[in-house]
Design a protein around this nucleic acid. Sequence first.
DNA 1: CGAGTCTCTGTGAACGTGCACAGTAGCTCA
DNA 2: TGAGCTACTGTGCACGTTCACAGAGACTCG
Lengths: 336, 336
Amino acid sequence: MLVQRRRPTIHDVAAVAGVSRGTVSRLLNGDKYVSTSAKVAIERAIAETGYVVNRNARSLVTQRTGSVVMVLSEPQEKLFEDPNFSVLLRTATRRLAERDVSLVLMIAADDSDRDRVVRYVRGGHADGVLLISTHAGDPLPDRLSDIPVMAVAQGAVLGRENVIPYAAADDREGARQMTRYLAGQGRRRIATITGPLDTPGGALRLAGFCDVLGRRAAKRLIEHGDYTQLGGESAMARLLERAPDIDAVFVGSDLMAAGALSTLRAAGRRVPDDVAVAGFDDSAVAMTTHPPLTTIRQPLARVAEETVGLLLGLIDGAEYTGPVILPTELVVRESA
Amino acid sequence: MLVQRRRPTIHDVAAVAGVSRGTVSRLLNGDKYVSTSAKVAIERAIAETGYVVNRNARSLVTQRTGSVVMVLSEPQEKLFEDPNFSVLLRTATRRLAERDVSLVLMIAADDSDRDRVVRYVRGGHADGVLLISTHAGDPLPDRLSDIPVMAVAQGAVLGRENVIPYAAADDREGARQMTRYLAGQGRRRIATITGPLDTPGGALRLAGFCDVLGRRAAKRLIEHGDYTQLGGESAMARLLERAPDIDAVFVGSDLMAAGALSTLRAAGRRVPDDVAVAGFDDSAVAMTTHPPLTTIRQPLARVAEETVGLLLGLIDGAEYTGPVILPTELVVRESA
DNA sequence: CGAGTCTCTGTGAACGTGCACAGTAGCTCA
DNA sequence: TGAGCTACTGTGCACGTTCACAGAGACTCG
C-alpha cells in the first residue's frame, strides 16, 4: 500500500489504473459497460491505494445517504430493559449491514429530542426512519409524514395504523390463545393486568382477552400496569383486593408477571394451584421466576426482520401492501 | 414557510436575507464578525425557508463528520441481554445528542463485520470510535490504531490497556469488597464462578477474589461460566461436585448467580443458610431471584458518561491522562 | 459499403458547504 | 490628513463524487 497522508480519492485510483475517474465510478456503481481489462486494473489500483469511497461526496450528488435512523420513543426510559428491544437492535443492525446501510440511533423522549430528529431527517441525512415503540398520541409520526422520507414502525402506531407502515407480532391473537388456554384449564375467574393502553401491547392484548371472555364479563377484572415489575406487583395487589376469588391472571408482560408472582406469594396464594399466572413475551425472566412462567412467545427476530425489510423495500420504491402480522406461540411452563 | 420542492441551501437563505452566503456561513459557525442587523435578517430567513445545514457538504470540506460509531464486539450475541449495555446505550445517546453528534451503531462479531467497520472508519465517516465489550485478542483495536481516528473503550481492552483509552467500573476492587464481605460473614469455604477470562469482568473480578483469599487457597474453588444463566447452573453443579462443603460462592454476574441458585435449590441446599450466593452488576434480575441477590452495584451510567466524555475530549484535542476508574458499591440483600 | 447498432471511454458540470483572501467603511491617533 | 486599526462583507476555489453527454472503435446487416 502506498504511503499516504491524504486519503486516496477516485482520481488517485483512476491515475494508478490508467483510466478516467468516470470508468472507476462506473465500476464502483455496477455499470455494465466496463471492459474486463479496465476492471482488473481498477481493482488492483483500489487494493494498492487502499481507496474507500467518500459517502459524503457521493450523497451530496445522489441525494441518497445509505443510512437509516432508528428512533426510540420511550418517555419512561424503560425500553432498554425490554428484552424485545435487544433482539430488534441486533436483527436490524445485521440486516442493514448486509446491505451496507448504516444505522443511526436517536432517542425521542421529549420535544427537544423530537426537534432534533426532525431536523436530522429534514436535513436529508437518512433515507428512512425506523420508529420503535411509538405510543398513541406521539406527535413524531405526523411531523415525519410532512417530510419526503420513508418511515416504518415496529408494532402498530395506535391511531396511525393506516399512515405508518408496520410489522408486528399478532398481539391480539396471542392474547386470545392464552385466554382460551386458561379457560380450557378450567379457570373460571380470569383477570388481566395490561400494559399501558397507549401501547399496542397494552391495547391489543386487552382486546384479545376481551374477545374471548366478552367485554361485560371481564369488566371488573382488569388492572393496568406499566410494564415494570413493581407495576405488576401493585396491580396484582389491587386485583386481589377487588376480587379475592380470582383463580387466574393473564399478565401483559413477563416482567409484570414476575411482580404479580411476588404479590401472590406474599399473600399466601399458591401458583398455579390457587391462581394461575400467565405472562407474555417469553423473555429471559420467564425462566428465572419461581415457578417458571407460562407465556406467549413472539417471533421477535422475524418481526424485526420484516420491519427492516419493509423499510428497505419502500426506500427502493416498492409498494406498501399493508402491515405484516406474524403469529405467536403458546409456551406452557409451570405457572399456569 | 415557502413552498419548496428542492431543499433550501445556504444560497437561498443568503438571498432571502439579502447577504452573501459567506455571512450566513459565518453566523452558522459562530464567527464573531457578523453585524446584528445581518444576524436578525439571517435568522429570520432561516426560519422562513426552513433551512437546515447539509452535513455531507459540510464534512466534505471540513473533514469532520459530527458522528461517532459505536462498535459492539460480542461474538456470542449475549451482549444485548446484558442490562449494562442498555444503560450504556441510553447514556451515550443522550450525551452525544447534547453535542449534536450522531451515533452510528455497528456490530463486529466476525471478520467480515470487522472489515466493514474498518472500511467505514477508514472512509472517514466518523470522528471517533466507541469500543464496547471488546475481548482480549480481538484484532479490531490494532486495526483501528492504524487509522487516524480516536478510539475509546468502555471497560479495559485486556492486553491493550495502554493503547486504547477507557473508562470502567473498578471490577477488581468490587470483587475484593464482596469477597471480604463473605469472609466477614464467617464463610470459610468460598468459591467463585467467573465470567470468560478474556473479558475484563471475568479476569479482573477473579483477580480481586484472589487478592483477598490468596491464589493458593482459592485455587481449587474456581469455575468458569459464560455470563449466561445456564452457564451459571452448570458451573455451580461442577463446583458442588468438586467441593461439596463450600459455604459461599461469589458469582461474576447476576444472571449466572440466578443459574447458580437453581442448581443449589435442586441440590437441596438452602440459600443463604447452607451456601451464601453473591452476584455482580446489580441488574434487574437481582431482585427477581428467590432469594434476592446480594451483589455489587456498578456506576454504569457514570461509566458510560465518562467513556463518551473521554472520546469527545480526545476528538476536541484534549490530552489523555489515563483511564477513568469508578468505585463500586456493595448491595446486601438476602442471598448472602 | 454505408448506416446503424453496441460497447466502452473521457470530460464538464453540479451537488452545498467552509475557508482564505481581498476588500470596504468607519474610527482613532499621531 | 493619512496611516493603521477594527468590524464586517463578498467571492473564488476546493472538497470527492455521480451523471449526462459526446465520441471512438468494432461489429452487423441490408
